[in-house]
Design a binder for these strands. Structure first.
Lengths: 143, 143
DNA sequence: TATTAGTTAATAATAATTATTAATTAAAAA
DNA sequence: TTTTTAATTAATAATTATTATTAACTAATA
């Protein structure tokens, strides 16, 4: 789906623009992330990297990913990772999420419930359900 | 959107079915969750409850929410909360998420990029983007 | 080369969650 | 009703992921 070499070159360009030196560690971390389509967590990335780069530390992985994210080079998939959030309503609905204050608001909309499911989703997987996440900055959060 | 009284009665029924005693603590926790449309985290729920129920402990809140979730009475919004997950691809795409092993697979599908945005989403909020999450059990995880 | 800023690695600190245990309460049996 | 048993709760300890701090190191610049 994506050309690795192309992505790496793009990555290097982005770093230049954002004034991030392209260090061996950073390249390694980016490559590890790119090569693993499952979106590994910092721990998994570190484990993967440690072989070709035995002295790299955990905090480097964290700080690096954070720097990439902050500058828009990569994105954090689960911006609600920091704490558990529960939903008392179990019937199909969707969510508006404020990326600043992390509040989650329900969206009930019949139309969204009937989107066309891509082939790849059901291919080998048992589909349990889906949800649309709308990332917003809410009225309270834009000062 | 949802009738509170109705939901509470439904909750009580569900507890019976799942062999969970309907204790004051559980009712209080469920009500706190239901009454706050923002999907509060355990800490916020605890803070809210402590007034009318000053002896309730943190671990009770955690265990109770966990029990509700386990039995399907409520659902965990962010099943990827446990650890950070990054995405090197920044162009619009969507995600298949295995609820067991938590792996995240990209879905590129033009059609999904053009869903109709409900009124309530843009109402007061600045929309940054959206993503469809397909929750599945992947081939590896159904033993 | 000297200076400076940026980066890394090691370590300590924090915060959220989970596990453990004892006390309490509720349900079931006698 | 009393006794027994199981479920629930509260308090506490332990664990894990993440963040902050700091000193050593490296790269860029003057």
């Amino acid at each position: 789906m994506v050309n690795i070499q192309e992505q790496i070159e793009l990555f290097i360009k982005k770093c230049r623009v954002k004034n991030l030196n392209v260090t061996p560690q950073r390249l390694t971390i980016y490559r590890a992330l790119l090569s693993d389509g499952s979106h590994p967590n910092p721990d998994a990335i570190h484990k993967k990297i440690i072989q070709e780069h035995p002295t790299i530390s955990f905090s480097t992985v964290y700080k690096t990913l954070e720097a990439f994210e902050r500058t828009g080079i990569i994105s954090l998939v689960n911006n609600l990772h920091d704490t558990m959030r529960y939903d008392p309503i179990t019937k199909q609905h969707h969510h508006i999420i404020c990326v600043k204050c992390k509040k989650i608001i329900d969206v009930f909309d019949e139309e969204l419930d009937f989107i066309k499911i891509p082939q790849s989703v059901t291919d080998g997987n048992r589909l349990l359900g889906f949800k649309v996440h709308f990332n917003v900055i809410c009225s309270n959060c834009r000062e």
